[in-house]
Design a protein around this nucleic acid. Structure first.
Lengths: 340, 340
DNA sequence: ACTGGCACTCGTTAACGTGGAGTGCCAGGA
DNA sequence: TCCTGGCACTCCACGTTAACGAGTGCCAGT
């Protein structure tokens, strides 16, 4: 059974009303609010068809209709147009992001901004190390057998690790080593680093060999292999807005939100095109987060994404507005990063 | 009316039972579970006295008794003894904290550990910059007019800021400046830094004067004046355990937890003795957090605290166990920091 | 192909009654 | 003087019942 245009109109109206009111929507209310030019009875027939196809359902007999995940999917893909941002929102974005002093600041401001604009839970991934390049590596002697390695990337991340040296190392050699390392690694992507670090060990003076080895193993393990993704979270209070919005409790959701790995999976993004994705309800792989939807996208200077960001909320969310907001914020942040 | 020993026993029993069951406790249940050697009727008289004094109250006529904030306070101050940690808990602490690779790691592990052991919301403040000393200041040229300042403190914190220079600065001068700055500031507490930084500007070569001024103003503003405290949070999912545990909703609590300033106030600690503090219900200054209790303490290498940590939960919490856990974790973390 | 009418379903809400846990008080006993 | 058993009372929790109304499905008519 093909769905004709009016049936799609009805579906769109149901989604919009349900998102606005959070209550099952009936045929009568529908014809009143939207200027469908037909009677409630006709709408009921259409609803029956839509239900048949799995786009809507009734919570109980003799209740109004509610969109299913499948219904939202059709709505998002075919029936909705992205809402342009209001001038107020544009201003809010600029005002919020201007004046960030460092990467931490940018990320924190961004995540709060997203949470505030969408009134949902927001997640922002720090620029992925794997997609960053080394700008500078600094070796700071803490004691004669301890070195702090500080790595600064072109995306603004600063990571540090403490290295225990097997044998003491005089200051002059540290300086020398710093120069060598920077010559080798500066400007290189971290993804390309492992062979270069290995080369460092191979080419080291015999007397320095063990020391350099200790250093390089720390570099490899903690900075490269363990893809050390960080992220920021905000807006968890929004979960408690509709109170019993989320059927059951919010416990599983809060739990999932504490698992960084889980969150990363959610907003993980392809490096290439910064497309905005929508995961609706069951499409979500994480079991605890069935019943929630995620709108996410990548961001980065230029056209390749260095990290992801997104928001999480009830499946019943205002998709057009949310998609617009997430995309816009990501674009602004990308521009901000490009300036540095 | 003085409270004799038995009345205090009754109060203790009420608190313990109520914490265990979360239900108002009646006179009959009380004599059964605790071996008070008197009849329910006697206990009822004692209860009436305790209620008179404001230590307990009845949710409704003909319901059992529930401790008031004042009752918990008396319990904590006079009636409870700190529970020693179980061997399993000791092992958990060690296992959890061993193997932390850097300060971030220590803080994150600590906060998760606290949340897990107490099954409540945990907060850990990073070592306060104001109480740290400069170990090393690094200047990394990003471009000729941009410098990244990286500060490493003796507590392991690494902070960075980008400085826009009014005029280009050649690499050699950067090196020179780095040396000068480190001579001046290394080993100094950040609290003592402002005059030293000012001196730097005054003593700078006239040609460098404006550049150094730009640098120093960034240092002062972002590293010293704005006491840039960071903190980590975990265990928010524990809020949703008792579900309607917290009367009303958890929204205000989640909101408060997102305000770093608020949290800092909660666990802020005196530098000197690492005493464990308990804030019960209304004693809490933050309005949204009335109805919750906070157990917090300071931690640091040696006997002075460089930061605070604590947990937040319902007023009806197991104070002896929580106090023991928080104190123990803080002690372990202190030892860990002392090793570095 | 749409519409009005109608019987039906079922969740929501309020009113009502009952059972039981817990209390306060009192009179009697150690 | 302090404790105890007994007793009447209060009031929440819970289940039952009834009325209400929003919404549906179906059907016959246009």
């Amino acid at each position: 059974m093909a769905l004709d245009d009016r049936k799609l109109d009805v579906l769109r109206a149901i989604v919009e009303d349900y998102v606005a009111t959070q209550e099952p929507v009936g045929s009568k209310a529908l014809v009143e609010r939207h200027h469908l030019r037909v009677s409630p009875a006709t709408v009921r027939n259409d609803m029956a068809a839509l239900e048949e196809e799995g786009y809507i359902r009734q919570p109980h007999t003799s209740a109004g209709r509610v969109p299913t995940d499948r219904g939202y999917r059709l709505f998002v893909d075919k029936l909705s147009t992205i809402k342009p941002l209001s001038p107020a929102e544009r201003r809010a974005i600029e005002r919020f992001l201007v004046g960030a002093v460092d990467l931490d600041d940018v990320v924190h401001r961004t995540v709060r901004l997203l949470a505030q604009l969408t009134r949902q839970v927001a997640v922002v991934q720090y620029p992925s190390l794997a997609r960053s390049a080394v700008r500078h590596l600094e070796l700071v002697p803490i004691s004669t057998t301890r070195l702090m390695v500080v790595m600064i990337t072109d995306t603004g991340r600063v990571e540090q690790r403490l290295v225990e040296l097997p044998t003491p190392m005089p200051e002059t050699e540290v300086t020398e080593l710093r120069t060598t390392i920077n010559e080798k690694l500066s400007g290189r992507r971290l993804a390309d680093a492992p062979p270069l670090v290995q080369a460092l060990v191979d080419e080291a003076e015999p007397t320095q060999r063990t020391t350099v080895a200790a250093l390089s193993s720390v570099l490899l393990e903690t900075l490269v292999e363990r893809t050390d993704e960080r992220l920021a979270l905000a807006g968890t209070a929004n979960l408690a807005r509709g109170l019993f919005d989320f059927q059951g409790s919010l416990r599983p959701i809060l739990e999932a939100l504490e698992e960084e790995v889980v969150l990363l999976k959610l907003i993980a993004t392809e490096p290439s095109p910064a497309v905005t994705r929508v995961l609706i309800g069951d499409e979500n792989e994480i079991e605890h987060l069935r019943g929630t939807s995620v709108v996410s996208t990548g961001y980065g200077p230029g056209s390749t994404a260095v990290g992801g960001m997104g928001v999480l909320g009830p499946t019943r969310m205002d998709y057009p507005a949310t998609i617009a907001t997430v995309s816009a914020v990501a674009r602004y942040v990308g521009e901000l990063l490009a300036q540095n």
